[in-house]
Design a protein around this nucleic acid. Structure first.
Length: 436
RNA sequence: UCCCCGGUAGCUCAAUGGUAGAGCAUUCGGCUGUUAACCGAAGGGUUGCAGGUUCGAGUCCUGCCCGGGGAGCCA
C-alpha cells in the first residue's frame, strides 16, 4: 500500500488535502440540509459533513439514502474540526456507493446494546464495531510485541506440530481425530515438549500457535482454541524464567501503550494502571501465597493447586503481576524439576495479572534426569513408548532448561481491560459455539 | 459433568392468570453543526418446542431444546 494512501488513523497527515476514503458507512445523522455520515475504514472512524448547498443534488441524494455498512468511496478534503470525534472531518465533495445495503434486509447490528448470544452469532459482523475492531488491533500489537521481543533477544521461532500422537500432559482432555492408517491423533494442547527438543538444538527458541483443550470449561477465561507463545531456553534456571516472563510482559505493555493509545481510549481502559507495570514484579513462593490467602479467609490446604477464587484474591492484592513459584510437586505436571532444597516442591512459576484477571503465564524448569523422568511417567500412568523421543533429550546431553507459556487472549484481555477473553480473538471457539 | 439464570417484534426489554407493549432498527414527514442527534407518524408477533392444569396461560406444572454465568481443569 502506497504511503500516500489515505487512512483514518493517520488523518492528521492529510489535513487540507483532497483524499478518497475507502470504507463503510458506520452511522448517519442528519439535520435538515446538513448530513453527517460517519465512515469507518478499518483503522478508525471519521465523521464527514455534507451541506445541501455545497454539493450536487445527486451526491446529496446518495448520502441521504446511505444505509448502515454500505460500502463507499468518499472523496473530499480533510479539515481540522474540534466538533468532530477524532478532531478531523471529511468535507465531502463526491460519493460513490459500491454496494448499498438494502433497507428490507438491513445490517443486523444496530448502534445500540445487544445480547451476548446475538453478538456471538454475528461475530463475523460484530468485529466491525468500534470496540471490537479496537480490541483486535490491540491483539495484533500484543502479538507483534511478542515476536519483536524474542526475535531481538536471539530466540529462534521453531513452531511445534499441531497434530500430535499423544497427550502432552496426560490429564487434560484432547480433541481426537483419525490419522490415516496410524490411528488416533490429537490436536496439540501445548508445544512445550517439542520446544524442549528444539531448545536442545538451537539454544533459545519459542513456538507460537494455536492450542486446543477439549475440557468442558465454561468461564470467562476459557476457550477451546486459543493462542499461546511458548519460549524454551537451554541452561535456564527458574530465576532466569521469572526474569524472562517479567521482561516479556513489560515489553508488551510498553508497546501497546506506545502504539495503541486510541484503541485503549476507545475501550475506556485506565492506562495509568498499565503505566505502573514496570519491573520488578513481586515474587512469592507458594507457601507465602498460601499464608496470604489464609489471612484473607481462604481455607485452601497445603498441597493443592490454587483455585479460581484464590487466584482472583491474589491478583487483586497486587498492583503489578505477581509471580508465584515453587508449588507442591503433586499439584503440578510430571515434567517439572524438583527443588533440590525441598524436593516436595517443583521449580515452577505462574504469573497472575492484576485487577483480578488471573493467570497469564505458567512455566517451569524441566526435569533433566533420565531416571527421574521415567519414574514420573510411571507414577502418572503415561505410556513410556510414546515418550521415547522425549526421554532421548535426557539421554543425549541433558542440560537444565525451562520455559513457559503465555496465553495471548488472557494477556490481551487484561491489557485491554475486557472481562471476557472471547472478545480478544476474531472467532472464539467455545463449549457451545463453533459458528461462525 | 454439576449448580444458578434466561428464551416475548430484526435487536434490547416490559406485560397481578383476563384485549401482547415500549425504545432502537426499517419506511414516510420535519429540522443547516449533529455526537448511539432530536421531533411526529406507519408497518412489524405461531411469546423456544411438546404436553398438562384452568372458563381463560407470555404468566402456573412436567419434559425437552437452545443460550448465558459460575465450579472443576487450565493459558
Amino acid at each position: 500500500m502506497a504511503m500516500s494512501e489515505f487512512q483514518i488513523a493517520r488523518a492528521g497527515d492529510f489535513e487540507g488535502r483532497e483524499i478518497t476514503l475507502r470504507g463503510w458507512l458506520y452511522n448517519l445523522r442528519e439535520s435538515g440540509k446538513i448530513r453527517f455520515p460517519i465512515f469507518r475504514d478499518g483503522s478508525g472512524l471519521m465523521q464527514a459533513v455534507v451541506s445541501k448547498a455545497e454539493v450536487s443534488e445527486a451526491v446529496w441524494q446518495r448520502v441521504g439514502e446511505l444505509t448502515q455498512e454500505s460500502s463507499v468511496l468518499a472523496r473530499g478534503t480533510i479539515h481540522r474540526e474540534p466538533r468532530a470525534p477524532g478532531g478531523f472531518e471529511l468535507v465531502l465533495r463526491d460519493l460513490e456507493v459500491l454496494q448499498r445495503v438494502p433497507e428490507d434486509d438491513p445490517y443486523p447490528i444496530a448502534p445500540k446494546e445487544h445480547g451476548v448470544d446475538f453478538l456471538l452469532s454475528h461475530r463475523h459482523l460484530w468485529i466491525r464495531s468500534a470496540r471490537q475492531s479496537a480490541l483486535l488491533r490491540i491483539r495484533h500489537e500484543v502479538v507483534r510485541a511478542i515476536r519483536e521481543f524474542f526475535d531481538s533477544r536471539g530466540f529462534f521461532l521453531t513452531d511445534a506440530p499441531i497434530l500430535t500422537p499423544a497427550a502432552c500432559e496426560g490429564t487434560t482432555t484432547l480433541f481426537g481425530l483419525d490419522y490415516f492408517d496410524l490411528g488416533q491423533a490429537y490436536l496439540t494442547q501445548s508445544g512445550q515438549l517439542y520446544v524442549e527438543a528444539t531448545a536442545a538444538a538451537l539454544g533459545k527458541v519459542y513456538c507460537f500457535g494455536p492450542t486446543f483443550r477439549a475440557e468442558k470449561s465454561k468461564t470467562r477465561r476459557h476457550l477451546t482454541e486459543f493462542w499461546m507463545v511458548e519460549p524454551e531456553v537451554a541452561f535456564a534456571t527458574l530465576d532466569d524464567l521469572m526474569k524472562l516472563g517479567e521482561d516479556l510482559v513489560c515489553h508488551i505493555i510498553e508497546r501497546v501503550l506506545q502504539r495503541r493509545r486510541p484503541e485503549l481510549e476507545a475501550l475506556e481502559r485506565d492506562t495509568k494502571r498499565l503505566e505502573r507495570i514496570k519491573p520488578p514484579f513481586p515474587r512469592i513462593s507458594y507457601d507465602e501465597a498460601l499464608k496470604l490467602l489464609h489471612e484473607k479467609g481462604s481455607q485452601l490446604p497445603w498441597g493443592e493447586d490454587l483455585g479460581g477464587a484464590d487466584e482472583t484474591l491474589l491478583s487483586e492484592h497486587f498492583e503489578k503481576p505477581v509471580i508465584i513459584h515453587r508449588y507442591p510437586t503433586k499439584a503440578k505436571a510430571f515434567y517439572m524439576e524438583p527443588d533440590p532444597a525441598r524436593p516436595e516442591l517443583a521449580l515452577c512459576m505462574d504469573m497472575l495479572a492484576p485487577e483480578g484477571f488471573g493467570e497469564i503465564i505458567g512455566g517451569s524448569q524441566r526435569l533433566s534426569s533420565y531416571e527421574l523422568l521415567r519414574q514420573r511417567l510411571r507414577e502418572h500412568n503415561l505410556p513410556e513408548e510414546a515418550f521415547g523421543w522425549y526421554l532421548d533429550l535426557r539421554r543425549y546431553g541433558s542440560v537444565p532448561h525451562g520455559g513457559f507459556g503465555l496465553g495471548i487472549e488472557r494477556t490481551t484481555a487484561w491489557i485491554a481491560g475486557i472481562p471476557h477473553i472471547r472478545e480478544t480473538i476474531p472467532f472464539p471457539r467455545l463449549l457451545y459455539r463453533i459458528y461462525p
